[in-house]
């Protein structure tokens, strides 16, 4: 099982976000920098949360922002944004969020191996704390099990 590409350009450390929308937008911008998504993808990720609620906060402190495959996706990709100050998504149990993963998937159906790889990382519950405390993109890549780019 392989993780979607997570190059250094898709990682932002200690970012400031005023609210959850800003945090999701940063994760979308990171996917744009790495060439995985177009600029409209962030809006699609935000709309998913507006439509369905804060379910993307999948574990304490961790949001997995994503939208559907579509014209705003260029290639499979992952982004990691760690927040200087945690933001609330409105989740009943898992707020506040310190780490936002952005996920772009280019083709429905072919994504489960990628999501499974992400899930495997966070089955180790210390991974979220380690990511939140990371001080460099290389450290994030190490925690995520990615060879430094």
């Amino acid at each position: 099982m392989s993780l979607p590409p997570l190059p250094e350009s898709a990682i932002e450390i200690d970012a400031f976000a005023a609210d959850w929308r800003a945090a999701v937008r940063l994760s979308g911008e990171a996917l744009v920098r790495s060439g995985a998504a177009k600029s409209g993808y962030a809006d699609e990720m935000i709309r998913m949360i507006e439509d369905h609620g804060p379910y993307v906060v999948i574990a304490p402190g961790l949001a997995l922002a994503h939208a559907r495959p579509g014209p705003q996706v260029i290639a499979n990709g992952l982004s990691v944004v760690t927040l200087k100050e945690p933001v609330r998504f409105g989740h009943a149990h898992n707020d506040p969020v310190r780490v936002v993963l952005g996920l772009a998937i280019s083709e429905a159906g072919a994504h489960l191996a990628a999501v499974a790889a992400v899930a495997n990382i966070f089955n180790d519950s210390s991974a979220i704390n380690e990511l939140a405390a990371a001080t460099s993109p290389a450290e994030v890549q190490r925690i995520m099990g990615v060879n430094p780019s």
Partner: peptide
């Protein structure tokens, strides 16, 4: 989940 990709994929695994 909402898109059938993220949360539901994690839940499946």
């Amino acid at each position: 989940c909402g898109a059938g990709i993220g949360s539901s994929g994690v839940l499946k695994v």
